Amino acid sequence: MTGLLAALLFVNAAFNLLVWPTFYRRVAKDPRARNAAGKPTRFLTVHIVLIAVALAIAVASAIAGIAALVG
Results as ranks from 00 to 15, higher is better:
residue 1 M to H: 11
residue 1 M to Y: 07
residue 3 G to I: 03
residue 3 G to W: 08
residue 4 L to S: 09
residue 5 L to T: 14
residue 5 L to Q: 07
residue 6 A to F: 02
residue 7 A to G: 07
residue 8 L to W: 03
residue 8 L to A: 05
residue 9 L to A: 02
residue 10 F to G: 00
residue 10 F to T: 05
residue 10 F to Q: 02
residue 11 V to G: 01
residue 11 V to P: 02
residue 12 N to A: 15
residue 13 A to E: 04
residue 13 A to W: 02
residue 14 A to F: 07
residue 15 F to A: 15
residue 16 N to G: 12
residue 16 N to D: 09
residue 16 N to Q: 13
residue 16 N to R: 09
residue 17 L to W: 10
residue 17 L to C: 15
residue 18 L to W: 10
residue 19 V to P: 05
residue 20 W to C: 03
residue 21 P to C: 04
residue 22 T to C: 07
residue 23 F to P: 04
residue 23 F to E: 11
residue 24 Y to N: 00
residue 24 Y to F: 14
residue 25 R to H: 12
residue 26 R to W: 12
residue 27 V to L: 01
residue 27 V to K: 05
residue 28 A to N: 13
residue 29 K to W: 10
residue 30 D to L: 01
residue 30 D to G: 03
residue 31 P to I: 08
residue 31 P to A: 03
residue 31 P to G: 04
residue 31 P to H: 07
residue 32 R to D: 00
residue 32 R to K: 08
residue 33 A to F: 05
residue 33 A to D: 01
residue 34 R to T: 13
residue 34 R to F: 12
residue 34 R to L: 10
residue 35 N to Y: 06
residue 35 N to G: 11
residue 36 A to E: 09
residue 37 A to V: 13
residue 38 G to R: 09
residue 38 G to V: 09
residue 39 K to M: 10
residue 40 P to D: 01
residue 41 T to D: 01
residue 41 T to W: 02
residue 41 T to N: 00
residue 42 R to W: 06
residue 42 R to A: 06
residue 42 R to Q: 04
residue 43 F to W: 02
residue 43 F to K: 01
residue 43 F to I: 04
residue 44 L to F: 00
residue 45 T to P: 00
residue 45 T to D: 07
residue 45 T to K: 12
residue 46 V to P: 03
residue 46 V to K: 08
residue 47 H to S: 01
residue 47 H to K: 07
residue 47 H to D: 00
residue 48 I to K: 14
residue 48 I to V: 14
residue 48 I to R: 13
residue 48 I to C: 06
residue 49 V to S: 04
residue 49 V to R: 11
residue 49 V to E: 01
residue 50 L to V: 09
residue 50 L to K: 08
residue 51 I to C: 02
residue 51 I to N: 01
residue 51 I to H: 04
residue 52 A to R: 11
residue 53 V to M: 00
residue 53 V to D: 03
residue 54 A to S: 12
residue 56 A to I: 13
residue 56 A to R: 10
residue 56 A to K: 08
residue 57 I to S: 09
residue 57 I to R: 07
residue 58 A to I: 06
residue 58 A to Q: 01
residue 59 V to L: 15
residue 59 V to K: 12
residue 60 A to W: 11
residue 61 S to R: 06
residue 62 A to F: 12
residue 62 A to W: 08
residue 63 I to A: 15
residue 64 A to H: 06
residue 65 G to Y: 00
residue 66 I to S: 13
residue 66 I to T: 14
residue 66 I to N: 13
residue 66 I to W: 15
residue 67 A to R: 15
residue 69 L to W: 06
residue 69 L to D: 02
residue 71 G to P: 01
residue 71 G to E: 02
